[in-house]
Design a protein around this nucleic acid. Structure first.
Length: 605
RNA sequence: GGGGUCGUAGUUCAGUUUGGUUAGAACGCCGGCCUGUCACGCCGGAGGUCGCGAGUUCGAGUCUCGUCGGCCCCGCCA
């Protein structure tokens, strides 16, 4: 750049700067060549400034300006000039001034970009990912990157202030025995053995508590070799915390304070604390989900006790066999056509319902569908319980308790989207507490940990561990926003005896436990303090998802600077790529290739 | 592992239902004109292995099968 030094950014100059001599550097965004006058929007991370080339000022500079292409990088020297009356641009913060160019330096030329950098972007995801450095130049992407930075910075400031230590845990770790598939790293020095990239710092952070670190956090990368989704990447970032000598209430308080700081830093919003709490049981009953969207009502109501003696055989037989009849009031949907209702039934069946019964509320009576099967008393009771009014549509599912709730819970979200039941920019936080510790896995016909096997059972449920694992509730909790789980945590088990009993429930032998978690159990033996914590992660990609919610994005992909595609490819650098035979030989491993010689990602398409 | 959807100028798409002359549009790009534009405008031009492969057919962008890739869902994700 020689002696040229940037004096201002492209988002900075205002009317008050008129008369200053400035040096701007940036990319050629748009060009408007009027023949005898040339306008260029110069762009950098901070904004756009219109620079003007005039032949009467310097014929040679004017001529060179005319040859600038899109995305050329230039440095210009010039004078800040107030725009003539009627030519200001109110859309732009810098729209009241121009910079009249007196000197031009091309810092680098650019090929014509493969797509136009515009908002909203029209290029395909594929192309955007291949040319990620161009896509990231767009203001929208710059805002996302900045938002993520602000969230991370607020996290550090807040947790530092609360006495937490930021501690890094290994990226080369021990293979995780359960859960998601690991990414494996072979060891050159120990042929035949592998490290695993960590799925989370869980075990290390517990050991840090044993080590007396008391309060730990890490903005931690977590890696899982599982299939992707719009909100799932093979590597994601979680805000990982752990505290010694804490109660659930203290953990909630810290997490709530953190959310306040993040929302304030990124959106400037003030969110209210403490967050309401719902037990898992309540959430399932009322919303049919353990991550309820509490921005709108339309709660599920249980009619089982009202309809035990109903003439409607379908309901009565389900109730007699121990099932439940539940109902969702689709308020104002009484005008729905039969085919609209049929579509909802199709959905319900896809989710496992036998059918979707319905009736409409009309003049205080139940009209259509199964309305005619109800007695007068039943009708009145149902209308009251469902808080139904004229013009409403009642939807019923009869099934076992949990399934009926889950199906209506999903239907509830369909109603939300179709009926526009939520306002943008509203954030409803809710704690879900008292999760069951174990879930029955139909396939393996065994108990498995609902969250992970290091969560402490409630004290009053300890005796049920062996006799009735399904009834054991854990000191386990999730933080949910607008139907998204953004954090999950627990009080951990800090005693070997309880840890071994929990492992036994999920069918892990003592030997197995010793081999896989021996190092943790050993650590527990040496004065492990009671501790617990929270990962703004869990199943959900934590920081990525928080930024997605904060910025109203549909996918976490653009909250990450360099994401993978749906099939786990990096289109920009072409990873994963083939390993050289010499490298593999040194590692003592051999890769088995697919039968045909096709190399994924190498087609000419 | 299963399912859905898309793939056509540099880009975004139309054309595929019903196979048939030279595959269109917009933006971008190139050239010309233009001294207050800001999605500048006007005139002209170049630009295509219809993802790839095989098949059916006199003839395939269009139909069939396979394959690669993007997006989305189920499974999976302690």
């Amino acid at each position: 750049m020689g002696d040229l030094q940037r004096s201002h950014t492209c988002g900075e100059l205002r009317k008050g700067d008129v008369g200053k001599s400035v040096v701007l550097m940036g990319w050629v965004h748009r060009r408007r060549n009027l023949g005898g006058l040339l306008f260029i929007d110069l762009r950098d991370r901070y904004g756009l400034t219109q620079i003007v080339f005039r032949p009467d000022a310097d014929e040679a500079i004017f001529e060179r300006g005319g040859h600038l292409g899109a995305e050329f990088v230039v440095g210009v020297t010039g004078e800040v000039v107030e725009r003539p009356a009627g030519t200001t641009n109110p859309e732009l913060p810098t729209g009241e001034i121009d910079v009249h160019v007196s000197d031009l330096k091309v810092l680098n030329a650019s090929l014509t970009p493969p797509f136009v950098l515009e908002e909203p972007i029209k290029a395909s995801d594929e192309l955007r990912l291949e040319y990620r450095y161009l896509d990231l130049r767009r203001p929208h992407m710059q805002r996302l990157i900045e938002a993520r930075h602000k969230a991370a910075a607020a996290t550090r400031t807040y947790l530092n202030g609360a006495g937490f230590l930021e501690i890094e845990t290994p990226m080369l770790a021990k293979k995780t025995p359960e859960g998601a598939r690991d990414f494996i790293v072979p060891s050159r020095m120990h042929p035949g053995k592998v490290y695993a990239l960590p799925q989370s710092p869980q075990l290390y952070k517990q050991i840090l508590m044993v080590a007396g670190c008391d309060r730990y956090y890490q903005i931690a990368r977590c890696l899982r070799d599982e299939d992707l989704r719009a909100d799932r990447q093979p590597e994601h970032t979680q805000i990982d915390t752990e505290m010694s000598f804490v109660t659930e209430d203290e953990i909630f308080e810290v997490a709530e304070g953190l959310m306040v700081e993040i929302w304030r830093a990124v959106r400037g919003d003030e969110i209210e604390t403490p967050f309401p709490r719902l037990t898992y049981g309540e959430a399932m009953e009322r919303y049919g989900s353990d991550k309820p969207d509490t921005r709108f009502g339309t709660e599920i109501v249980d009619l089982t006790d009202l309809l035990g003696g109903t003439d409607f055989n379908v309901f009565r037989s389900v109730i007699e066999s121990g099932g439940a009849v539940k109902c969702l009031n689709a308020a104002g949907c009484g005008g729905w056509s039969r085919s609209e209702i049929d579509k909802k039934e199709e959905l319900a069946k896809k989710w496992g319902a036998k059918g979707l019964a319905w009736t409409k509320v009309d003049g205080g009576a139940l009209a259509g569908g199964i309305g005619k099967f109800f007695s007068d008393d039943e009708r009145a009771a149902v209308i009251e319980r469902a808080a139904a009014a004229d013009g409403d549509l009642l939807l019923f599912v009869a099934h076992d308790r949990k399934k009926a709730s889950r199906i209506l819970g999903k239907l509830r979200l369909v109603l939300r989207d179709e009926l526009d039941l939520v306002q943008p920019g509203v954030f409803n936080f809710v704690w879900i507490t008292e999760f069951p510790l174990f879930a029955w896995n139909e396939e393996s016909e065994g108990w498995e940990a609902e969250h992970h096997m290091f969560s402490m059972p409630r004290a009053q449920d300890l005796d049920l561990l062996e006799s009735d694992p399904g009834k054991v509730l854990g000191q386990l909790y999730d933080l949910v926003v607008n139907g998204f789980e953004i954090a999950s945590g627990s009080i951990r088990i800090h005693r070997r005896d309880i840890q071994e009993r929990v492992m036994a429930v999920v069918g892990m032998s003592k030997e197995d436990a010793e081999r896989k978690f021996g190092f943790l159990l050993k650590a527990l033996d040496y004065g492990a303090p009671p501790h617990g914590g929270l990962a703004h992660g869990g199943l959900a990609p934590g920081l990525d998802r928080i930024v997605m919610l904060l910025m109203d994005e549909d996918s976490i992909r653009d909250t990450i600077a360099f994401p993978k595609t749906y099939r786990g490819l990096s289109l920009m650098d072409g990873s994963p790529s083939e390993a050289e035979p010499a490298v593999l030989k040194e590692l003592g491993i051999e890769l088995v290739k697919p039968p045909d010689d096709d190399v994924p990602g190498q087609s000419s398409g």
